[in-house]
Simulated scan of single mutants.
Amino acid sequence: MKVGVMAGYWGAGPPRRIEQTLAEAEALGVDSFWTAESYGSDALTPLAWWGSQTSTIALGTSVCQMAARTPTALAMAAQTIDHLSGGRLILGIGASGPQVVEGWYGAPYPRPLERTREYVSIMRAVWARDEPVTFDGRHFQLPLHGGTGLGKPLRSIVHPLRADIPVYMGAEGPKNVALAAEIADGWTPLWFSPKTDEFYRAALADGFAREGARRSADDFEIANVCWLAEDDDVERAAARLKPVVALYAGGMGAKGANFHNDVFVRMGWGEACAEIQSFYLAGRADLAAQAVPTAMVEDVALVGPVDKICEDIVTRWKPTCLTTLILGGWPRREESRNRILEAIRA
């Protein structure tokens, strides 16, 4: 299993110590470094800025929201960073949800799987650079239908360093996971739990079995963000992550349309999720966090003393379908870092 480190998206401002964390990670041979975006900081600018201070670590987005950019715009940004980094980009993309897509980007959300398929096809046509890019889809047309009539098929001026930049898809539901297995090079889960491994293996197998599937289980990457909080007291460690879990399970999306909530419900946390969401939508984020059971955090994160964290990695996380464990938290103590990295890589 490979190991990554997550910077994520920003809160009120840039996260602290990222430069130091990234320098330590690259020195320790960590495989990848990841940024993200929601509706504040973008994923690409920090990746380029911080990535310029590195030379070997892979640079990934987990994820770029498709509604934020047209397919050709994201293809341009990707090939630019890939050139500047010497071929180290991993382009993670995701559909997000209707709350963000329609509320923040002012774009339509329906038929996200179909939209994703078109989006990826266009990006790959840009990078292949075989001919001027044309596309006639339900969601995207190049040249645009119904415009001035002056639109012209174009070919990228830039010759991509790699004509096949790896694309990972952020997905949570089984249909989207299957689509990732069919058309992408990797999958970035969110709130993966080892106890849902068989459920996701079945969804992946569905995608791999489709005609024209791009990859197989043998060469498909699965890079999961796993939050980490080290503390000698498990309850105290879990308490640091409960607000994050509550935000996603309770506050990301509307009632009845929260895909993260659905993930936790599938794990068996339906009753807790209902209470968390009720508090969050009532404006009581504090009570929502308090309603998150510690065991719910332990399902999706590494919490507690370093001995417990390492044991969980070896016995629970390594036997899963995951190929990369992206740490959503960087141990401050050198001894802990070394032991955790060793447990993941062993």
Rank of each mutant, 00 (worst) to 15 (best):
R266W: 00
G270P: 09
D286N: 09
A274F: 06
E271G: 05
A295F: 08
A282Q: 13
G251I: 02
F259E: 13
Q290N: 10
S278C: 10
G283W: 12
A288D: 14
K255A: 10
F259S: 14
A254I: 01
G283F: 12
N261S: 01
G256A: 06
L287I: 08
F259M: 14
A274T: 14
R266S: 03
A288Y: 13
V297C: 02
P293I: 02
L281A: 11
A295N: 11
A288S: 15
I276N: 01
H260R: 03
I276M: 07
P293K: 01
F259C: 10
A257V: 07
N258C: 05
A289K: 12
R284E: 13
I276S: 02
F264H: 04
A282W: 09
E298R: 15
A272L: 02
E271F: 06
A257P: 01
A254M: 02
A282D: 15
D262R: 00
F279V: 05
E298S: 15
F259A: 14
V297G: 03
W269C: 01
S278Q: 13
A291W: 09
F279H: 15
V300R: 10
Q277Y: 02
A274V: 11
W269F: 02
S278N: 13
G250M: 08
V265G: 00
D286R: 10
A257L: 06
M267W: 09
V297S: 07
M296T: 04
V297F: 03
F259T: 10
A257M: 07
S278Y: 09
N258Y: 03
E275D: 09
H260D: 08
G268I: 06
M267D: 11
K255M: 06
N261P: 01
E275A: 11
Q277H: 04
K255W: 03
G283S: 11
N261Y: 00
H260L: 09
K255C: 03
M296K: 02
V263F: 00
Q290E: 14
M267G: 11
F279C: 14
F259P: 10
F279T: 01
V263T: 08
G268Q: 06
V297Q: 07
A257I: 02
A274M: 10
Q290F: 03
G256N: 07
V263W: 00
R266G: 00
V297E: 10
A257N: 09
N258D: 06
G283E: 11
L287N: 08
G270C: 08
F264A: 04
M296N: 04
N258L: 04
E271C: 07
Q290C: 08
R284D: 15
E271M: 07
V292Y: 05
V292D: 04
D262Q: 01
G251V: 02
I276K: 01
F259Y: 15
R284T: 12
A295Q: 14
R284P: 03
M296W: 05
H260P: 07
G268W: 04
F264M: 09
V292M: 06
G283T: 11
P293V: 02
F264G: 04
C273Y: 00
A288H: 09
G268V: 04
D299K: 04
E271I: 08
G270Y: 06
G251D: 03
F259G: 12
Q290P: 08
V292W: 05
P293N: 05
A291F: 09
K255T: 09
